[in-house]
């Protein structure tokens, strides 16, 4: 891809981001009570996003998902109680609310840690098995066709 094309693509992405942010700000202003709960509730995710690198961006996504799940009951509670600013303030200042919301965010951390561990262990095992299979197949080939089948790899070995 040429530099011009890359620059064009970046420009397009940042433009889309701008539009999304505009909608978010506009939506936030329209639904101000809900926005207040979400803004305070989603703080762990925002912190995680600000402190994460590009490598750990997936982890932020995990935390944000569970953090959001923690916010959802209180948003519905707000909507059922009139969806005004005062109720919103009451809900969010409740310590249990904060514990629950931030607890789900912590759960996100734990979830990420567990799933990553399980998946990487599984993948490692799978790679080990593949390595064994490759070695076995290579041995079979050498047995059936002789050392010559190694071609340049054999030469390198002998040179070493």
């Amino acid at each position: 891809m040429s530099d011009t094309e890359e620059r064009k693509k970046k420009k397009k992405t940042s433009a889309l981001g701008g539009v999304f942010l505009l909608f978010l700000v506009f939506g936030g202003l329209v639904f101000l009570p809900t926005s207040m709960i979400l803004c305070i509730g989603m703080l762990p995710s925002i912190v995680a996003l600000l402190t994460s690198s590009i490598v750990t961006r997936s982890r932020v996504s995990t935390i944000a998902a569970l953090n959001f799940v923690g916010c959802v009951p209180f948003v519905f509670e707000l909507w059922s109680l009139g969806n005004d600013f005062e109720t919103s303030f009451e809900i969010i200042t409740e310590p249990l609310t904060i514990i629950i919301i931030y607890g789900t965010a912590a759960l996100g951390y734990i979830f990420d840690w567990v799933v990553v561990g399980v998946v990487s262990a599984y993948l490692y095992q799978r790679s080990e098995a593949r390595l064994k299979a490759i070695n076995k197949r290579q041995e079979q080939l050498v047995e059936a066709w002789g050392e010559k089948v190694k071609g340049k790899f054999q030469t390198k070995k002998s040179q070493n």
Partner: peptide
């Protein structure tokens, strides 16, 4: 080893869970 794939998998699972719970609340 497998860190990126694990995190991707974790993110996907977390969002599925989040979506299911949100739907239940809705």
């Amino acid at each position: 080893f497998g860190l990126k794939k694990g995190r991707d998998m974790s993110a996907v699972l977390a969002w599925i869970i989040a979506t299911v719970i949100t739907c239940l609340f809705v």
